[in-house]
Design a protein around this nucleic acid. Structure first.
Lengths: 216, 216
DNA sequence: GGATAGAGTTACCGATAGTAACAAGCAGGT
DNA sequence: ACCTGCTTGTTACTATCGGTAACTCTATCC
């Protein structure tokens, strides 16, 4: 059995690429999304042009980095979404999976979602990049959820379009609420999950008007 | 009546600042969020250091720009939110106000929300800035909505916290769905508004499971 | 031994944010 | 008349960053 030279080289390149990505990960998590290509190359023990040979440009590197993390998160969400349970439980578990992920690794979250903000010391403002990572993650999650909704919920005619609207809308709700919650931590995670599920369960429509209060 | 020299100067400075912001607006809307300080200064008929004297740094300029647009949008949303109508109508009108705004001026929207993406020709990737504008707008809208919810909806004890969760969640839903809709335009605006309002009205909870389809 | 291919380096380019340092107009006080 | 102080404006510069061209080194295959 002869592993051809070609195959060997390709495997070596893939391994190298993975090493570079891990180095980039360390730097980005340490220096924030403003990490420079020079810094990443130095962390990997090499120099810039090699990074460019592997990833094309900075966007390519950051995209590869984002895909790594995004895939991990999406796998978890898919599991929660497809679990054998009633709908309310599935929704709560999915919300909780997402929130637990961003709670556990806020640095990664900020890299994926808020690539414009430094995470560490108040460094110079310039040079951050890869702003376009957040939208793809949100969009991928939205499409994923839309598909699950369309598959498992009976929405009648035109349900496919409705499912997509809801998929993106629910993901956006989860994202914005999670972002706010991560910043202010106003309540424990389960509470947030319950509140959001309540919202999706129509509690806003069911609640009565307030008639008390000053002036009424 | 002596207008003191000091007051005159301050008014002149404010007027100048407004002119500069208008020039910056034109450039940003033409060149996308990657507009350089040099380009903005040239459009205003001056040179860079003056911009820096007025706005401190690029973030300051972009922040001032964002505040301008954000205030306009928020005023419209407040009006729709406080209109004398039943809750469903208010919700639909608010959603429609937001979506109409981003539909009418997508360039402004992209500047506020996706500062990382060029809008025009595929220019060089570097130099965009002011990534942190989108979060403040979303947060301000979330807090605004939370306040209206807390004021007008009876949510029982702990309602204030619930209102904030919902405020941010609903704003995120609106934002993500709007972003997706603006990109793909899969349906007319009224349809999107109705779908989102239906989601908030608990139609997801009320719908039955699908039992048809291949394999079941 | 000599050609070939990849990994790696140095040294550079062009653009950008941001900053001195300096010049010109214009008030008011002496 | 002259100086002082303030604002507006300029030119010319620095530092940094993304990205690239051209070169070297090493190992492998013929």
């Amino acid at each position: 059995m002869e592993t051809s030279q070609r195959e060997d080289q390709q495997r070596a390149a893939a391994r190298r690429r993975k090493e570079l990505l891990e180095a980039a990960d360390r730097v980005v998590l340490r220096d924030g999304p403003g990490a420079s290509m020079n810094a990443i190359a130095a962390e990997a023990g090499i120099t810039k042009p090699i990074l460019y040979r592997h990833f094309g440009d900075k966007g390519g590197l950051y995209r590869a980095l984002a895909v790594r993390h995004t895939d991990g998160l999406l796998a978890g969400l898919r599991a929660a979404l497809d679990a054998p349970a009633n709908r309310r439980d599935r929704v709560e578990r999915t919300l909780d999976t997402y929130l637990a992920a961003i709670e556990a690794r806020p640095q990664v979250y900020r890299f994926l979602m808020h690539p414009g903000e430094d995470s560490g010391q108040p460094e110079s403002e310039q040079g951050f990049d890869a702003g376009r990572q957040s939208a793809p993650l949100l969009r991928r999650m939205g499409e994923e959820l839309a598909q699950v909704i369309a598959e498992r919920v009976d929405l009648g005619t035109g349900g496919e379009e409705l499912a997509r609207v809801w998929g993106h809308g629910i993901v956006g709700m989860m994202h914005a609420a999670g972002d706010w919650w991560l910043r202010e931590r106003p309540c424990p995670r389960e509470t947030l999950v319950r509140h959001l599920a309540d919202l999706l369960w129509g509690r806003l429509a069911a609640a009565g008007d307030r008639t008390d209060g000053p002036g009424f």
